[in-house]
Every structure is written in structure tokens, then in C-alpha cells.
């Protein structure tokens, strides 16, 4: 089978569409979760959704819809526990997570389905996605993207500073609940792509990668969407081609590709931040200025743009960093030049 044949397969085309929409939608909610320092909430909701899938298998209803309902309920309960701010809120969340996973596995057994069938949902099965599931995935992704970007100013303000948002007249509870529900919806949307156990990765890892390189929220959000799309589309294509040689599942490939993006972004980001901090202009302090004195050592060259010493702005002039101290050119009235220690 040639690559052209592969992309001509309807199953592959459906998988490509599903990969793009989940890659776009999951990081949108992920950004708000990371901003609230709730990066693991998606993971917890994924565990809860397992029970939803199993409930679908047991009752014969569509597992996608039962997963949505159970995950949304789980999200509401998590939000309630969080709002109560009980001292051991994280323990309560853990109870919910493990209850969700154990309940799901148990119910699947009772329904007579094999563990392998549940595995489709746990680790994703992009290539088996049907037309009706694809439509649901696209519709839910669209809801997540429209609300996540359209309400960005409000969601940003609430996540940034709840008290300020409240005094601005925003209904903080509503927006908190909205983020939780959107997270639950994204979890079920990404369920088919990367699987419930890896869902959080597609929500959080693109954000982690994106924020290495950005300074603003907007850029982080858009960057995460781009990285999420690259990872999910790239992961699918790589796994499809690799499948000629070995069994390569798309879900883990997508997550590993997202992690690879982070691995690339991290050193670049720390290099950029280091560079930015290094050339940050020195503040001007008139009281200290009187203490500046000439540098006594011998100087074999004149500092300039090409001399190789780091140049940093300092008030109205430039300092050159030289052996751990700062040189500034001082021209005296007599026309004689020397370097002052700044």
C-alpha cells in the first residue's frame, strides 16, 4: 500500500479530521487548567469518564454520550469539592479518580465486554472512529473552541484573580463550573484520539511547551493550539506510516510527539529567558552615580559593538561587561578617555 492509498482510506480521513479538531480543542481548556494550577484535573476526569464508557457498554447506549454525562457530573463534583476548599480536597479528588477507574473496569466486566474493548477507550483508537462519532467529536470540539476563545477575557480574569473578578461583577461560580464542564467535554472528545489515560497529556503538554517560548497569555493559548494540532496530526501520520513495519498505536505516538515539542521548546525558552535577563537595562540610581570611579587596569582595546563584550544599557549610555564588572566610557574635559567602573 502506498502513502497515497493510505490517505485515500475513509477511515484514515476520518482519523485525520478527528486528530485536527481534538488537537485544536484540548489545549484551549488545558491552558485554563494550567493557569489555575489544576494540570492534573484532566487526568482525574479521564479516570471518571472510564465509568461513563463502561456504563454505555453495560446499557447499550453510546459510550461517547455516557462518558460525556459522567465526566460532566464528575467535573461538577470536583468543582464543588474545590470550592468548599476542604483541607483534604486533593484526597477527595483522588477518591473520585480511583473510584471512577475501578468502577469502569468492574462495570465492563459485568457487561460481558472484554478488557480489550475498554482498551480502545483507555488508549485511543483513532482509526476505528465511525462517522457518527466523528460528527459528535467535531461538534463538541467546536463548542469547546468557541466558548474557550470567545469567553477568553472572562475566563482569564476569573482564573487569574477570583476576588478581582467577583468585584468586577463576573459570576465567578458560573465560569469556574464552565471551565470544569469544558474540561470534561474535552476529555471525552480526546478519548478517541489519545485515550482516557493519556487525555491530560494532550491538554497540558502543548501548554507546557508553548509557555516556554511566550510572555503573554494570548500567545500561550494560540501556541498551545498550534503545538496540539501538530502533535496530534503528526502523531497520527507517523504511526500510520510506521504501521507498515510494526504495531504503532496513534495515541501514544501523539503524546510522545507533544512531549518532543516540549523537549525542543524548553532549552530554547530557557536560553531566550537567560538572554533577555542578561541584557535587561541597569537601573539608574543618581545617589550611587557619585561613587563611580575610573577602572585602574590596562585596557588593550576600545569597547564597541564588535568587541565581543556584552553591552547593556544603563541610563543614557552603554556599559560593557568585562571580567565580571561594568565598563562605561568616560571622556574627560581634556579629551582623555578612560573607563569608569559602573
Amino acid at each position: 500500500m502506498t502513502p497515497a492509498d493510505l490517505f485515500a482510506l475513509p477511515a484514515m480521513q476520518r482519523a485525520l479530521i478527528a486528530a485536527v479538531v481534538t488537537g485544536l480543542a484540548a489545549p484551549v481548556v488545558g491552558t485554563y487548567l494550567v493557569q489555575r494550577r489544576l494540570a492534573l484535573m484532566g487526568d482525574g476526569l479521564g479516570h471518571v469518564a472510564v465509568t461513563g464508557v463502561a456504563l454505555g457498554l453495560l446499557t447499550g447506549a453510546s459510550p461517547t454520550w455516557t462518558a460525556v454525562i459522567v465526566a460532566v457530573l464528575g467535573a461538577a463534583i470536583i468543582e464543588l469539592i474545590r470550592e468548599r476548599g476542604s483541607a483534604n480536597g486533593d484526597v477527595a479528588l483522588a477518591l473520585l479518580f480511583y473510584g471512577g477507574l475501578a468502577g469502569g473496569v468492574l462495570l465492563t466486566g459485568i457487561s460481558g465486554q472484554s478488557a480489550a474493548f475498554l482498551g480502545q477507550y483507555l488508549f485511543g483508537s483513532l482509526l476505528t472512529i465511525g462517522i457518527s462519532d466523528l460528527i459528535v467529536t467535531m461538534a463538541l470540539s467546536a463548542v469547546v473552541i468557541v466558548l474557550g476563545i470567545g469567553l477568553a477575557p472572562q475566563l482569564f480574569a476569573v482564573a487569574q484573580d477570583q476576588e478581582f473578578a467577583k468585584v468586577s461583577g463576573l459570576r465567578v461560580r458560573f465560569y469556574n463550573l464552565l471551565v470544569a464542564v469544558l474540561a470534561a467535554v474535552s476529555v471525552t472528545v480526546a478519548m478517541r484520539t489519545v485515550g482516557l489515560l493519556l487525555v491530560s497529556a494532550l491538554m497540558v503538554v502543548p501548554v507546557a511547551a508553548s509557555q516556554q517560548l511566550t510572555r503573554s497569555f494570548r500567545a500561550t493559548l494560540l501556541g498551545a493550539m498550534v503545538i496540539g494540532t501538530i502533535a496530534s496530526l503528526g502523531g497520527l501520520v507517523i504511526s500510520a506510516f510506521a504501521s507498515f513495519k510494526a504495531t504503532v498505536a496513534p495515541g501514544p505516538t501523539i503524546v510522545l510527539l507533544a512531549l518532543a515539542c516540549f523537549t525542543v521548546a524548553w532549552p530554547i525558552g530557557s536560553l531566550l529567558r537567560r538572554r533577555r535577563r542578561l541584557v535587561e537595562p541597569f537601573p539608574v540610581d543618581p545617589e550611587v552615580e557619585a561613587l563611580y570611579g575610573a577602572c585602574p587596569g590596562e585596557h588593550d582595546h576600545q569597547h564597541g559593538p564588535a568587541c565581543g563584550h556584552l553591552a547593556i544599557e544603563h541610563g543614557d549610555h552603554v556599559d560593557y561587561v568585562h571580567d565580571g564588572h561594568r565598563h562605561a566610557v568616560h571622556v574627560e574635559a581634556s579629551g582623555e578617555r578612560h573607563y569608569d567602573e559602573h
Binding site: 493557569q35 489555575r36 497569555f217 500567545a219 500561550t220
Partner: peptide, 8 residues
């Protein structure tokens, strides 16, 4: 004023 995600 910082949170989990960079903001300008």
C-alpha cells in the same frame, strides 16, 4: 500577580 501561565 503571577499564575500558572505567562500573562503580560
Amino acid at each position: 500577580a503571577a499564575s500558572g501561565v505567562p500573562a503580560s
